[in-house]
């Protein structure tokens, strides 16, 4: 009984401070831990788009993440094989295969299927969003906390995210993504987790298009290894020299 009271008190407190926009600073750090295993690492992701249950386009990306502000994504398979996307300090560039010119791009620009550039180049939420409120909810009989995330930067991929995390350990369960107009454009289900270095890490996520209910895009995080690239790899003009990775 004491536990229930304490729990209710804590939730009430979170909801109160949430309304003032001052939620516990560690909340998103805890959520991000399910997707970010090291400060610098390589994550290999297979993205497949589906209509109903028929597989369509497929692509494999390797993302070299160096802290919260730098990432280099290289497409290893699919139509645009060898395409490179660079994220650095809120800015995104792409170097298309066969092109010798990196282009400045927007985070919402489509990459493939329902995936935007920002969905692949940005992994963590902590640096891009702040929690403005926390409420209680249930998703498929799992007790969750619904976090309302608001973009802290103009360059954030989405203006607002409703994120449901498991109450017991803050593991992401599902998310709704909104534009600044308030329109819901996508939603995601965090399907599967696997143990990596003794802790659970996101293995598979499915992204659904709010406007095209028959379509979905599955992100399968195939491999994660600690790896740090030299700084020059995160310079926009070096993109055309990147090879051998």
């Amino acid at each position: 009984m004491q536990k229930v009271l304490l729990h209710s008190l804590l939730i009430g407190l979170l909801m109160t401070v949430g309304a003032r926009g001052q939620v516990r600073p560690g909340t998103l750090e805890q959520v991000d831990a399910f997707r970010i295993p090291h400060t610098a690492f390589m994550a290999r992701t297979r993205i497949t788009s589906f209509i109903d249950s028929t597989a369509g386009e497929m692509a494999v990306f390797e993302a070299y993440i160096a802290g919260p502000e730098k990432s280099l994504v290289i497409q290893k398979a699919g139509k645009n094989r060898d395409m490179k996307i660079l994220y650095r300090n809120e800015k995104l560039w792409v170097a298309l295969p066969g092109s010798r010119r990196p282009l400045r791009i927007t985070p919402i620009q489509r990459l493939m299927g329902q995936a935007s550039n920002g969905d692949v180049a940005r992994i963590g939420w902590q640096t891009d969003y702040s929690v403005t409120s926390i409420t209680e909810d249930t998703v498929k009989s799992t007790a969750c906390r619904k976090l309302k995330l608001k973009a802290r930067k103009r360059s954030s991929t989405y203006a607002v995210i409703d994120l449901w995390v498991r109450q017991s350990d803050a593991r992401p369960v599902k998310a709704d993504f909104f534009m600044a107009s308030g329109k819901k454009i996508k939603w995601a289900v965090y399907d599967r987790y696997e143990t990596y270095n003794g802790r659970p890490l996101l293995k598979q996520m499915t992204l659904y298009d709010a406007l095209r209910p028959r379509e979905k895009t599955v992100f399968l995080y195939e491999k994660v290894t600690p790896q740090r690239l030299p700084d020059r790899y995160y310079n926009k003009n070096y993109l055309v020299h990147v090879n051998g990775l």
Binding site: R104, I105, T106, I108, R154, S155, T157, Y158, A180
Partner: peptide, 8 residues
């Protein structure tokens, strides 16, 4: 230059 989430 990129302005917001959509415009370059």
């Amino acid at each position: 230059y990129v302005i917001g989430q959509r415009l370059e």
